[in-house]
Design a protein around this nucleic acid. Sequence first.
DNA 1: TGGCAAATTGGGTAAGTTGCCAAGTATGCG
DNA 2: CGCATACTTGGCAACTTACCCAATTTGCCA
Lengths: 123, 123
Amino acid sequence: MDPQTLARFEARARIMKALAHPTRLFLVDALSGGEKSVAELTRMVGADISTVSKHLALLRTVGLVRDRKRGTRVFYSLQAPCILNFFGCLENVLRTAAEEQLRLAVSTPLAHDTQNANGDATG
Amino acid sequence: MDPQTLARFEARARIMKALAHPTRLFLVDALSGGEKSVAELTRMVGADISTVSKHLALLRTVGLVRDRKRGTRVFYSLQAPCILNFFGCLENVLRTAAEEQLRLAVSTPLAHDTQNANGDATG
DNA sequence: TGGCAAATTGGGTAAGTTGCCAAGTATGCG
DNA sequence: CGCATACTTGGCAACTTACCCAATTTGCCA
């Protein structure tokens, strides 16, 4: 991987890292319905406001959200709504993985415990 | 954030984490052209084969890629090609962020060094 | 000006991540 | 069988990240 390619993927990874946390994914999702203040988001998340503020700052640093100060409050909004398209893909991956797990469980049952553990032997 | 919502975003975050590394993003990109062996990918990445193997294992764990053993070799391929759509969004975010940086740099120049550093004082 | 509310920043600790080497596993071949 | 090749796994040191608490900054208003 040459330096230029590396730099490009490092830049992409920085954005992905910003999304690689449940709270931050939740924040992005919450902002899909329009801008919200830190306090409002803090209430939704249910963590310390300083924690939420730091999460938002990280999202802003990589350019995923933007902030707008109004009085003492700061409203955050989505800067890159195209992220939302990705959520469907994530659900897709999760569903496929779950199906795969199920398939494996059925096709390669454990040596012991095969008598009636599944509870579907009659159906 | 109620427990069920938390669980859903944790599951999503697990996938995002798997993508939150330059090497793993590179691997996903490399696999967009079809399945490749670990040795082949290792050559492209330029790291230790054990490192690449672990990256691939992680991608497989979350269901992003799949492996197929053939003889002594293991071929990996994309299980969730929809990820590739996201790369365009990432580039979008990067471009927008860069433009934003430029805009800020132009609108709020440093107090010193404003003589002709930009080279566009005459335009 | 003093005081309140909203938000950010700093700090310390606990937990997670990464990469390389070494060792182990699996397959093919003579 | 013995050996080589391809890959995976274990383990450890270096580094990064997350959270809560405390302190600070910012803006509003009496």
